[in-house]
């Protein structure tokens, strides 16, 4: 299991269930390495504000992560983490390798909407 404070997805079935039950889902599929840890950290920080988004992680090396590794959207990817954004169960955006907080925010705001600050 990844050493983060995000919701851990351990099986493909659980991922399918989560994306069917939640409108907006961000899944970071990675390892505990230097390119992945910053992205988990950013998601942990944003979780507080983006209450309308479900933030999760998944172990890249688990067999179950084939559900992400086999997505057509990630076939050109050669850097972890693979970060997938799902809306209503469909992939709307995927990124490869480390991202900055502002890059993640731009994607969240564009596809899932800005957080309600009230």
């Amino acid at each position: 299991m990844l050493d983060t404070n995000l919701k851990h997805i351990e099986t493909a079935d659980i991922l399918t269930k989560i994306i069917s039950e939640n409108e907006n889902v961000m899944v970071i599929c990675g390892r505990m390495g230097p390119m992945c840890i910053p992205v988990y950290g950013i998601a942990e920080e944003l979780e507080e504000d983006y209450k309308h988004v479900k933030f999760c992680d998944m172990e890249f090396d688990s067999f179950e992560a084939n559900i992400i590794r086999n997505l057509p959207e990630v076939q050109g990817f050669m850097g972890i983490p693979f970060t997938i954004y799902y809306k209503n169960g469909k992939v709307v955006k995927a990124t490869s390798s480390i991202q900055t907080k502002s890059q993640v925010i731009i994607i969240l705001d564009k596809y899932f909407g800005e957080p309600n600050k009230n």
């Binding site: 390892r31 390495g33 230097p34 390119m35 992945c36 050109g76 990817f77 050669m78 850097g79 972890i80 990124t95 490869s96 390798s97 480390i98």
Partner: peptide, 15 residues
């Protein structure tokens, strides 16, 4: 970056 360029051998070597 992440599509052929990497800065971390242990992270991305197996690709």
């Amino acid at each position: 970056k992440g599509k052929g360029i990497s800065y971390c051998a242990t992270c991305d070597g197996d690709f």
